[in-house]
């Protein structure tokens, strides 16, 4: 809750500048003067490919960071992320089921582009529910038990995804594998609106809960004694965060580490107030993923790397650094 909004305004300025530059940049630079000329190939590439992709990257990064932030707060642990809690792999399992069994066949074709979204949301919420029930079964709602349950659920769903891949045709297996790496390549523009709505609405509700989140970061007992309705707040936060993760995963695959790194960096630079942290994490996460996606487009050009590989390459060492730092200090940074 550090006073002063100067760092936030600076952050916003840099983020907006980078976000605006990104769609003009690629294998081929696009001149801003060409994008308004109808029929020009540059305009086509800009409006149909690069801009939607940049927006998708921003929304996915923002969504993952915001949900990572609230998971870290709820568990008072910097290693609690959509990944470690099994939400990502639950959503990935849901979407894999859709890709393997419902995508090509017309069984539930009427769901159209919403199909993988629905399945991923179902998978994400389902895994959260399983984690919750496992924790409940131990007679409490303790953080270590819940983290452990998350790790177990994560493995469980990851195995199920492998099982589905094993049973699928070679083509579907490849599709699922590519998607599991986290990619913004095969983007359905129609899906951007769903993602936009879910991320924006979710982030707004979470922002409204920022005083409760501040208190929860001081511990559940203390939060309850200060008047926070713990069970209701936690349920709401978990459902919203899981839905955001589900929506992102259904569009872009399980992109890792963004939900862990970005909130952590935001905390280090802005303090603990969720009123600031939530918008800052959303912005930082969005821009981070835009830049990672840019790198994914450029590193092996003209081929494209899945963006999940880039985030994992940066995130892995960061994860270790956080772990050692957390161990040294014996607490959440």
């Amino acid at each position: 809750m550090r006073q002063g909004y100067t760092p936030l305004f600076l952050l916003i300025a840099v983020c907006v500048a980078l976000a605006f530059c990104s769609p003009f940049w690629g294998i081929q630079l696009i001149s801003p003067f060409n994008i308004l000329q109808t029929g020009s190939p540059d305009a086509e590439v800009f409006w149909r490919l690069r801009l939607p992709r940049t927006i998708a990257a921003f929304l996915a990064g923002a969504g993952l960071s915001v949900s990572g932030l609230v998971f870290q707060t709820m568990f008072r642990n910097p290693l609690a992320t959509p990944f470690t809690l099994g939400v990502s792999s639950g959503a990935a399992f849901g979407a894999s089921v859709y890709f393997a069994y419902f995508h090509v066949g017309a069984a539930i074709g009427f769901l159209g582009s919403l199909g993988s979204l629905g399945f991923a949301l179902g998978g994400g919420l389902g895994s959260m529910l399983l984690v919750y029930l496992l924790t409940r079964a131990r007679g409490g709602f303790s953080t270590p038990v819940m983290l452990l349950a998350g790790v177990i659920i994560n493995f469980f769903f990851a195995s199920l995804v492998m099982f589905i891949q094993y049973l699928s045709s070679a083509y579907d297996t490849l599709r699922i594998m590519h998607w599991l790496m986290g990619s913004l390549t095969d983007l359905q523009i129609a899906r951007l609106a769903d993602l936009f709505f879910i991320v924006l609405a979710g982030a707004c509700i979470l922002w409204r809960l920022s005083p409760e989140l501040d208190l929860l970061s001081a511990g559940e007992e203390l939060a309850a004694s200060r008047g926070v309705a713990i069970r209701r707040t936690k349920l709401l936060v978990f459902v919203i965060a899981s839905m955001i993760v589900g929506a992102v995963v259904s569009l872009a695959g399980p992109i890792g580490f963004v939900g862990m790194m970005i909130p952590h960096i935001a905390r280090l630079s802005l303090g603990q107030s969720h009123r600031l942290l939530l918008p800052a994490s959303a912005l930082l996460g969005g821009v981070f993923l835009i830049l990672c996606d840019l790198a994914a487009r450029l590193v092996l050009a003209p081929a494209e790397l899945p963006v999940g590989i880039i985030t994992a390459l940066i995130g892995g060492p960061f994860f270790l650094w956080t772990l050692f730092r957390a161990n040294r200090q014996g607490e959440m940074v």
């Binding site: 809750m1 920022s210 008047g227 009123r275």
Partner: peptide
Amino acid sequence: ALTPPFNVEEFLRLSRYPHVSRPG
């Protein structure tokens, strides 16, 4: 053990939660 990540004044401000109706 698990000291809340706040400074003293921030920590005290959190206690006003029951009296403060909305963020800010």
